[in-house]
Design a protein around this nucleic acid. Structure first.
Lengths: 283, 283
DNA sequence: GATAAGTTGTAATTAAATTACAACTTCCTT
DNA sequence: AAGGAAGTTGTAATTTAATTACAACTTATC
C-alpha cells in the first residue's frame, strides 16, 4: 500500500503529536520530501524524534526512507497493467489498453527469458551452415521478420510458412543446419512433426515456444517467453511481439559474436538500401 | 525530464568515473535509492565526492535529493530507457537493453499516436469493400501480420510484399477499397508510387509511416508513430514493433465497431483452429 | 615536454538523523 | 483522590551520512 493512503488509514492509531505530523505531511507532501527532519518537526511543532517515530510507525526504516516512499507515492504513475479491452471502450481506452498490455507482456517476457539459453542459441546460430525459420498462422510473420533480419548477415537463411515446404526443408536438413520453430502455444501438430523430422535428420532445432509444450519436447533448445496467454478475443497477440523482440535479441547476439569486421559488411547492406529511397533533406 | 532518461541522455558529457556511477545506477536503480552515498561509491568503485558531483551534474541538490528524484522516476512507470547496445555487451546486457528500448519505443508511440486518426482509420476499414496491406522489407512482416488478423474477420483482405503484385493490385483498386501502406521511413520510392496509383483509382490510402514523409503526402490518412529512428546498427527495429501494435489497435477497433453478433462469429474462427492443435491437458 | 584544464580521491568539516534517557501526561487502581 | 504504571514527548548526546576544501593526478594542447 501507498504511504499516503497508509497515513490516512492509520490516522486513528496516531498519538496527538504524531497526528500533527500527519496533518502537516498531508497538507504539504511535496514540501515534505524536500525538508529535513528538523524543518518538518518545526512545521508540525513537535520534536525531531517524534517525526522519526512517526516514520517508523509506518513501517519505514526512518525519516529518509519515509521520504523515499512518499516521493514514490506522489509520483502516482500507473505502470503497465494488463487491462482487458471492454465492449464499450472508446478509441482512447482501447488504444491505451493495447499499448499497456503489450508493454506488460514485454516486461513479463524480459523477466522470464533465460539468458543462458539465449546465449546458447546465439552460439548455435553463429555456427549454423543454414538457418530455417518456420512458423504458421500468426507466427509466420515472426518467421518472415527473422528471415529479413538474418538475411542481412549474409548467411544462408530460409523461411517457410507452408507445411509442405517446411516438411520438405526439414527432410533435406542435415548436421550443422539450424531450424527455428516458432509457435506461441507449442501445440500446433504440424509444426511438432516438422521439428521431429528435422531432429531425425541431425539438425539443431530451436523452439521459440511455451515451455513444457509438445513442440518444446521435440526441440534441442527451447526459448520460452512465458507471456500470459491471450485470454479473451479482443486481446491482441502480445506474445507475438515478445517473439519478435526475442528474434531481435538473437540477431543482435549474432552480430556481436561475429565481431567488428562482420559489422562493417553489415553497414554496406544498409547503405545499399539507400538507392531505393528518397533522400532525406537536411535543412 | 525524468532523471533516468536524463542520465542516459547526458552519458556523453560524463567523465570516466561519473560513467561508472551512471552504469551502476542504471543497472540497479531500485538498490540505489536504498543505498547511502558510501555504498553506492563502493559499488561503482569511485569515491564519495564523485557520486556527489554526479548528482549535482544532473541538477539535483545533492545525493539525497537525487535519490528522491530517482524514486519518483521509478514510480513514474518508465524504468524503460533507450540504452544502446555496446560492442562488448554480454548476453544479459544486450537482452535487457533490447527489451527496454523496445518498451521505451512503445511508450513513445503510445504518447504520440493520434487517437482521432486511429478512429477515422477504423471507420474507413469497417466500411471497406476490400482491404490491402502493402509493405516491403522489414515492413512486409507487419503487412503479413495485418492480413492474418483481418482475415479472421471474414473481410476480403490481401497482402503483398512484392512490388509487381502491389502495383497490379493498386491499379485494379476502386472506390471503397482501402490500401494500407506500411513503411517506417516513408521514403521507399516504390511504395510511394503504389500509394499514388491507388489514390488515382479512388481507393482510400492509409499510411502507417513517418509524418511529413514522401509516402505520407500520398496518403488519405496518415498514422504516424514517431518512434525514435534506429540510429545505430545494433539497434533493432523497434519501430516495427510499434507498427504491429498499431495494427492490433486497428483490428481491435474494427471488432468493437462491428458489434456483438460479429464477435460471436469471430469466436467460431478461433474454435476452428483447435482441431489443428494438441489438446491442453488440465490436471 | 611544459602547462593548463579537467578529473579524482583523501581528509576535514558540517549537517542530518537516530538513540538514550529523563520529564511529563494520562489513565487506571485502590 | 493519591499513587503508580503505561504511554507520550522532548532534550541532549551520539552516530551516521553527506558535503567541502584541497591536493594529487591525468589528459589534452600548444
Amino acid at each position: 500500500m501507498n504511504v499516503l493512503e497508509k497515513i490516512v488509514n492509520s490516522v486513528n492509531s496516531f498519538s496527538k503529536s504524531e497526528r500533527k505530523v500527519a496533518d502537516v505531511i498531508l497538507a504539504n507532501p511535496q514540501t515534505t520530501i524536500h525538508s529535513s527532519i528538523a524543518a518538518l518537526a518545526k512545521m508540525a511543532d513537535v520534536s525531531e524524534p517524534t517525526v522519526n517515530r512517526f516514520c517508523r510507525r509506518l513501517d519505514t526504516k526512518g525519516f529518509p526512507d519515509f521520504k523515499l516512499h512518499l516521493a514514490q507515492s506522489l509520483a502516482n504513475g500507473t505502470p503497465y497493467v494488463n487491462r482487458h479491452v471492454e465492449e464499450d471502450d472508446g478509441p482512447e481506452a482501447y488504444t491505451a489498453k493495447i499499448f499497456e498490455s503489450t508493454m506488460a507482456a514485454l516486461d513479463a517476457a524480459r523477466q522470464n527469458v533465460d539468458i543462458n539459453t539465449v546465449n546458447r542459441a546465439v552460439d548455435v546460430l553463429t555456427q549454423a551452415k543454414k538457418i530455417s525459420f518456420f512458423g504458421l498462422g500468426a507466427s509466420a510473420s515472426v518467421a518472415h521478420d527473422a528471415q529479413n533480419k538474418f538475411f542481412r548477415f549474409n548467411v544462408p537463411v530460409v523461411c517457410f510458412d507452408d507445411i509442405v515446404m517446411q516438411r520438405m526443408s526439414a527432410i533435406n536438413s542435415s548436421e550443422g543446419d539450424v531450424v527455428v520453430c516458432i509457435s506461441h502455444t507449442g501445440r500446433t501438430k504440424n509444426l511438432c512433426d516438422i521439428a521431429s523430422i528435422a531432429r531425425e535428420n541431425d539438425a539443431t532445432v530451436i523452439g521459440i515456444t511455451a515451455y513444457d509444450s509438445p513442440l518444446a519436447k521435440e526441440c534441442t533448445l527451447v526459448l520460452s517467453l512465458d507471456v500470459p496467454e491471450d485470454t479473451d478475443m479482443y486481446m491482441p497477440m502480445a506474445s507475438r511481439v515478445a517473439q519478435l523482440v526475442l528474434i531481435d535479441i538473437l540477431a543482435t547476439g549474432f552480430t556481436l559474436r561475429r565481431g567488428t569486421k562482420f559489422r562493417e559488411n553489415l553497414k554496406k547492406v544498409k547503405d545499399s538500401l539507400r538507392g531505393s529511397r528518397f533522400e532525406k533533406k537536411d535543412f
